[in-house]
Amino acid sequence: MIYVKNVPNWERVVRVVMGAIAIAFAVVNWGVSNVAVGAGVMGAVLALSGLVGFCPMCAMLGRQLDKRA
């Protein structure tokens, strides 16, 4: 199945940066905090959706890119 990108370029960059920050937090605090596991998973999902350009939750809500822009 081919997915149509539904995340604009500026948001893709933000998602990748925030995902990298969350993954870095998880790596630093892995044995110290239980929140690190959640941050790692959340960061991986954010970074992946930013790299691919498709967000399943946005698609379920009907979000589409503006074709004119």
Rank of each mutant, 00 (worst) to 15 (best):
G43K: 05
R15C: 06
N29V: 02
F25M: 14
L51Q: 02
C58N: 12
L46D: 00
V45E: 02
N34K: 04
A69W: 07
C55M: 05
P8N: 09
F54E: 05
R15I: 10
C58W: 04
G38S: 12
N9W: 10
A26L: 05
V14R: 12
A59P: 00
A39E: 02
R15D: 08
V27F: 12
N34T: 04
F54G: 08
R63C: 04
K67N: 05
P56L: 12
P8G: 03
W30I: 10
A24P: 01
L65E: 07
A36K: 08
F25G: 05
I2A: 13
A59C: 03
L46W: 10
V16G: 03
L65P: 02
G43F: 08
V45Q: 02
P8D: 11
N29I: 00
L46S: 05
N6M: 01
Q64L: 07
I21Y: 07
N9A: 12
V27P: 00
P56D: 03
V28C: 00
A22Q: 06
V28W: 11
N34P: 02
N6C: 02
A59D: 14
F25T: 03
V37F: 14
S33N: 15
G62N: 09
E11A: 14
A47N: 00
A44W: 08
N34Q: 06
G43M: 07
A69Y: 09
M18H: 04
D66S: 03
L65A: 03
M60T: 05
R63G: 00
W30F: 15
A20Q: 01
V14Y: 13
L65H: 05
P56T: 04
V52D: 12
W30D: 01
K5I: 00
S33W: 13
L61I: 09
F25C: 14
I2V: 14
